[in-house]
C-alpha cells in the first residue's frame, strides 16, 4: 500500500459514496412516489436540491458550534466511508473494524446534536432527545447482530468478514435470524417510518433540521446520501458477502436500502416509547435466537 493508493482511497471513497448515495436518495424518493402513485422527482433532483441549498444567497448561523456541528456531521461520515471496505479499496478500512465503525457512526449524530443545541430551538432539542432515544432503541438489536457476525466470522475486521463470506457462503444464509434482525435495526437506523418520530415534520417541525438554512441544510442533505450508502454497504458486507467488484456490490447495496424504503412509506409513525418497545422486543428476540444458533 503506497502513498498514492492511500491518497486515492482518501479521495475516492467519500466521492463514490456521495455519488452512489445521491442515486439512493433518488431511488428512495422514486419508491415513495411510486407507492403513492405519483411520478416522482426527475433524475437529477438530488443534485438540484444540494446545489440550490449551497447556492443560497443568504443564510443564518446561530454561532460557531452551529457551524462545527455541520462540519462534524458531514466530516464524520466522510471518515466513516473510508473505514467501510469496498472492492479495490480496503487498505485503510482494515485499520478500523466493525466496533470502531459502529462508534464512528455516532460522531455525525453527536455533531448534529451539538449544532442543533446551539440553535436554541426547543423543536430541535426535542428532536435530538427523540433521536438519541431511538438510537438507544435500535442500537441494542444492532449490537447483538454485530456481536453475532463478529463471533461467526471470528473477526472484527470487515475485510476479514467479507473474505470469509466469499470463501464460504453468505452471512444471510448462515445466519438468517441475525440478518432479519439487522434489517429491522436498519429501519430504525435510517430513521424511516415507522421510526421517524424525531423528524415528525407536522409536530416538531422536522426536529433537528428546524433552524437549518442554505448550506447547513445542504450539509444535512449530503449527510443523508452518506447515511444511505453506509447502511447499504455495511449490511451488504455483513450479510451479503460484500462485493468482488462494484458490479456485484452496488445492486446488493441498492437492494438493502430499497427494502426499508418500501416498508417505510406504508406506515405512519410510532410514539417514542413504542419505538423502543418494538425495537427492544422483536428484533432483539430474533437476534438472540440467531445468536443461540451460532454460539
Amino acid at each position: 500500500m503506497n502513498g498514492l493508493h492511500i491518497l486515492s482511497e482518501l479521495l475516492l471513497m467519500p466521492l463514490i459514496a456521495f455519488v452512489v448515495g445521491l442515486m439512493m436518495v433518488l431511488m428512495m424518493r422514486k419508491i415513495s412516489a411510486r407507492i403513492q402513485r405519483r411520478i416522482g422527482p426527475p433524475f437529477f433532483q438530488p443534485i438540484y436540491d444540494i446545489v440550490k441549498l449551497y447556492g443560497k444567497d443568504t443564510q443564518i448561523s446561530h454561532g460557531l458550534i452551529h457551524d462545527i456541528g455541520i462540519i462534524m456531521a458531514v466530516g464524520g461520515y466522510i471518515g466513516a466511508e473510508i473505514l467501510l471496505p469496498v472492492p479495490g479499496m480496503e487498505g485503510i478500512a482494515d485499520k478500523g473494524g466493525i466496533i470502531t465503525l459502529s462508534y464512528f457512526l455516532m460522531i455525525p449524530s453527536l455533531g448534529m446534536a451539538l449544532g442543533v443545541g446551539q440553535c436554541a430551538n426547543p423543536n430541535g432539542s426535542i428532536g435530538i432527545s427523540r433521536a438519541l432515544t431511538s438510537m438507544l432503541a435500535y442500537d441494542v438489536p444492532f449490537i447483538i447482530v454485530v456481536f453475532g457476525a463478529a463471533w461467526h466470522y471470528q473477526s472484527t475486521s470487515l475485510v476479514g468478514m467479507i473474505e470469509y463470506q466469499q470463501m464460504n457462503s453468505w452471512g444471510i444464509v448462515e445466519m438468517p435470524f441475525l440478518a432479519t434482525a439487522g434489517l429491522f435495526a436498519l429501519q430504525g437506523m435510517l430513521g424511516k417510518q415507522p421510526f421517524e418520530i424525531y423528524i415528525a415534520p407536522a409536530e416538531i417541525a422536522t426536529g433537528p433540521m428546524v433552524e437549518m438554512s442554505g448550506k447547513y441544510m445542504g450539509g444535512l442533505f449530503v449527510m443523508q446520501t452518506f447515511q444511505l450508502y453506509t447502511a447499504g454497504v455495511l449490511y451488504a458486507s455483513l450479510f451479503l458477502g460484500g462485493g468482488e467488484s462494484w458490479l456485484s456490490l452496488l445492486p446488493k447495496a441498492f437492494l438493502v436500502v430499497a427494502i426499508p424504503m418500501s416498508i417505510a412509506f406504508m406506515f405512519p409513525r410510532y410514539k417514542t416509547e413504542d419505538v423502543i418497545r418494538i425495537l427492544w422486543k422483536w428484533p432483539v428476540m430474533l437476534a438472540l435466537i440467531g445468536l443461540a444458533f451460532i454460539l
Binding site: 482518501l10 467519500p14 457551524d67 455541520i70 462540519i71 462534524m72 456531521a73 458531514v74 466530516g75 464524520g76 461520515y77 466522510i78 471518515g79 466513516a80 473510508i82 473505514l83 485503510i92 485499520k95 478500523g96 464512528f104 460522531i107 448550506k215 450539509g219 449530503v222
Partner: peptide, 14 residues
C-alpha cells in the same frame, strides 16, 4: 487521522 481528515474535508466544503 481518518476522523480529522473527514472533519477537514467537511470544513473545506463548509
Amino acid at each position: 487521522g481518518i476522523l480529522f481528515y473527514g472533519f477537514g474535508v467537511g470544513a473545506l466544503i463548509f
